[in-house]
Write a protein that binds this DNA or RNA. Structure first.
Length: 126
DNA sequence: ATTCTTACA
DNA sequence: TGTAAGCA
């Protein structure tokens, strides 16, 4: 019964987010802090969960994707399944980003083309 | 001073 | 998510 607990502002400070963000995650069902009356009390486990969610966010995972990965964790086993799932998710993210990068480069080439035409037109005018 | 809920940008 | 209102 000496488990460390944190207030919402404790965690907000530690992770550099607002209390709004933490409550938002709760609304989305990502965390379920215990209540002490109206006040939310976060356990060490809640803290880790939030940390993992934010880590997922940093690598472009949606809140849903992060939860899916996190909830697969089984402290009793090797979590081979979870690891494969995460690898797949990361692979999909990478593929999507590469596709976007390709599209952007294509648009950039299009812009170059138009700009060249415009500049040439100006030269011809002179 | 802090947190909470609700609602709107 | 930010911001703001009205409570406790």
């Amino acid at each position: 019964m000496t488990d460390k607990t944190y207030t919402i502002s404790d965690l907000a400070r530690e992770f550099g987010v607002t209390t709004r963000t933490i409550r938002f995650y709760e609304e989305k069902g990502l965390i379920h802090p215990r209540r002490e009356g109206q006040k939310r009390l976060y356990s060490a486990a809640d803290r880790v969960r939030i940390k993992l969610i934010l880590r997922g966010k940093r690598i472009g995972l949606s809140l849903q994707e992060s939860v899916e990965v996190i909830d697969m964790y089984d402290p009793e086993h090797n979590n081979r399944e979870q690891l494969h799932s995460l690898i797949n998710t990361v692979g999909e993210k990478r593929a999507r980003l590469l596709r976007q990068q390709r599209d952007i480069e294509e648009m950039l080439r299009g812009l170059d083309e138009v700009q060249q035409l415009c500049e040439q037109a100006l030269v011809d005018l002179a």
